[in-house]
């Protein structure tokens, strides 16, 4: 860029229509147009990744109709979640009273078994074999060849 005017002045008496652009030797100035060191440039790039400038989309402006649509969708979802939560709570309540009834009966029928059932289990953890459900089944769906490990003390 800098060398272009000089080029033109040098060829003043030549017809400008046949002037071709000659690529000049790269200089430090046009290699690094911002004029900062590469280390500095890296910091600027990293900071600009976190900054919202130039990256934020346009604000979402919903028309009245769209807003009502959006609110309806959200309300429907909330009602659906409330319904699921209600079912869950009801089931947990039933389970709680079932355990209570079982324990009360056990206390009455066999205090020894009741005592055994009440042994503190705090600190009990899930076993390592517990598998979390996944999107797709594994290649070996079930491990059949299980042999009981005998622990010798």
């Amino acid at each position: 860029m800098l060398s272009t005017p000089r080029l033109i002045t040098r060829c003043k008496n030549v017809d400008t229509s046949i002037l071709t652009i000659i690529r000049t030797k790269r200089t430090k100035a046009n290699k690094n147009s911002t004029g900062v060191s590469p280390q500095m440039q890296r910091v600027v790039t990293q900071l600009s990744v976190m900054s919202a400038r130039k990256k934020q989309p346009k604000m979402l402006k919903l028309s009245n109709e769209d807003l009502i649509k959006h609110q309806t969708i959200e309300t429907a979802w909330k009602i659906y979640q409330d319904k699921l939560q209600g079912q869950r709570t009801l089931r947990l309540k039933k389970q709680y009273f079932a355990v209570k009834e079982a324990m009360d009966t056990l206390k009455e029928v066999s205090p020894a078994l009741f005592y055994e059932a009440n042994v503190d289990e705090s600190g009990k953890t899930f076993p390592m074999e517990l598998r979390v459900p996944t999107d797709a089944p594994p290649r070996e769906i079930w491990h059949y060849d299980y042999t009981l490990k005998t622990t010798e003390t």
Binding site: A98, A102, N118, V119, Y146
Partner: peptide, 25 residues
């Protein structure tokens, strides 16, 4: 050949068998 894990020592439900009066935990 069963690898099982008991969830709790406590029974979750008692069922009353009407015929012989046995209790099932």
């Amino acid at each position: 050949k069963l690898n099982t894990w008991t969830v709790s020592r406590k029974p979750v439900k008692v069922l009353n068998d009407g015929k012989d009066g046995s209790l099932e935990f």
